[in-house]
Design a protein around this nucleic acid. Sequence first.
RNA 1: GCGAGCGUAACUCAGUUGGUAGAGUGCCACCUUGCCAAGGUGGUUGUCGAGGGUUCGAGUCCCUUCGCUCGCUCCA
Length: 588
Amino acid sequence: MSESKENVLDPIVSLCKRRGFIFQSSEVYGGFAGFWDYGPMGCELKNNIKSAWWQSTVRLREDVAGLDASIIMHPAIWKASGHLDTFADPMCMCKSCKKLVRADQTWDIFAESAIMEALRPLITDGRADAGKTANWCKGRAKSIAPNLFAVANAETRLPVIFDKIPVCDSAQTLYTLLALPEGAEHVLPCPYCGGEMTEPRPFNMMFKTIVGPVEDQANAAYLRPETAQAIFAQFQNILATSRQQVPFGVAQIGKSFRNEITPRNYTFRSREFEQMELEFFIKPDEAVELIHGNVITLADNPDLAEPQPAWGWEVWHKYWVEQRKNWLIHTVGLPEKSFVEYWQTADELAHYARACVDIQYAFPFGVQELEGIAARSDFDLTQHQTHSGKTMEVFDEALKLACKPMTPEARDAFTQKVEADWTRRGKDPALARQFAATLFEGKYIPHVIEPSAGVDRLALALLCNAYVEETVTDEKGNSEIRTVLRLSPKIAPIKIAVFPLVKNKPELYAKARDVFKKLQRRWNCFWDESGAIGRRYRRQDEVGTPFCVTVDFQTLDDNTVTLRDRDSMQQERISLDALIAKLDDTLL
RNA sequence: GCGAGCGUAACUCAGUUGGUAGAGUGCCACCUUGCCAAGGUGGUUGUCGAGGGUUCGAGUCCCUUCGCUCGCUCCA
């Protein structure tokens, strides 16, 4: 299996280069890792994917508006979103076993064993259960390790740490606990082999640049690592100008940049990539309950065809999972059985996420994520409200009206219910009271469902799915290999190729040019007059052109042409008008 | 970032112990051609990934670098 993994993409990579889908960036200078160029066929393919997404996500809906934001934004955005902190992971490498470990995870492992060591007397005395204590240590280690790491170069902050380690009471104890020689270098041994580790080096995943003429770190800015944050930052502007009301969404397609340590698997993990993201804003469940008296959950087994006002976040999330799957299957033609819907487990979820579904495609190099549909609660908007000082709340007329007749007792009861619920979910109950009070005024920060897809990953998945080498046998019994890209007609780069049956008959040639010009006004067409007709068909098969039209002598008499189908290789005689009607039907 | 392997025409690949590059396919032109890559004639292609070194002479040996593949690692 691991042997066969080698070069599984080769035929596809080769075809993509030969036929102008994908080139290595800067190839004449030896290439540039993690960057790719889309050639004549590739850019048509990508444009078709993007416009199909835009069509179904924005144009065919009334509740989604578009945005095209700048790539470089105020650095504070990345502070608020958390990218500045979590994208700057310092890493250590073991000098002997060469393993790379996130610096805070080294501490993680040490903190765990140190706390365990400190608690051992309790277990020995029989006052604590060994298994439970071990689990507790693991949890504690996770929460204190980042602080331990921070403190490694700032001993003044030690007391902060001690607050979190009740068993410690002095710096001396900490050093003893961690088995560190006092005043020694604060780089820990390798957690795997005990070897010496290098100094932690920052691996910032965000590309940094300087804005303005002065080369000063104070003017540092970043290329966005995701498109989503601009939508949150512009939330109030869009709300004010789009005439939308919650629930509604904002869609954006654009480039994002991540300085990946290891770009691999062709275009799958690139340093520059394109995303299609939707942030769909919904009312918090508490607001839905106040307005409608109940919240529809998945337990109610709701019909997901049309959004309903009383849907809770859970149903909205499921709705978007279904929407996205339908689009993948029916619009861009990814077979249902070629991908899996993976629901992240509780401990895989980011702390602010309530649910996240990964749509994973079975690539030749493994099952990998194509798209994620996350329920991100009100985390992002709240972050930007906190950091910017600008409100991200919306005013909801229906909510205000619903709350108006509520008695003080009813409000108290509701508030207590929210407090209990928040406590159960591990959120600060003190904030619940404030949240409820805001709701009674008809205001809230919307929650968000985020379907986020990678254009390049999807393009690669579609190419992998479409690539077929089939054996064709002619009447004489000769077999040969036919290479075909079975792309969905909607996303195929070229829709129709037009051929004159022969090119040395001026009348026929002119007629074929007329047909070509006529079709070209509607679709991306390709003209080919060279070589035998069969060769021309096969050339189109390799770039996935679904239809070929051949103009022959009969066309001159009755305005009919032969229409050849890519997949079946069957031909039919059809009038030009009927052809246009048929293609309209298939391609729109 | 580390380790291993690899890098010759647009594609797939030859290239013997160092002697200034080949094949097939493709592509282009003309002829031919009445529907599935295989007719005829002619033509096109490379700083042998890049830079440096050894040598009279390097695709071939050495060093550096870039890129690709695999493994480790990472991955909102």
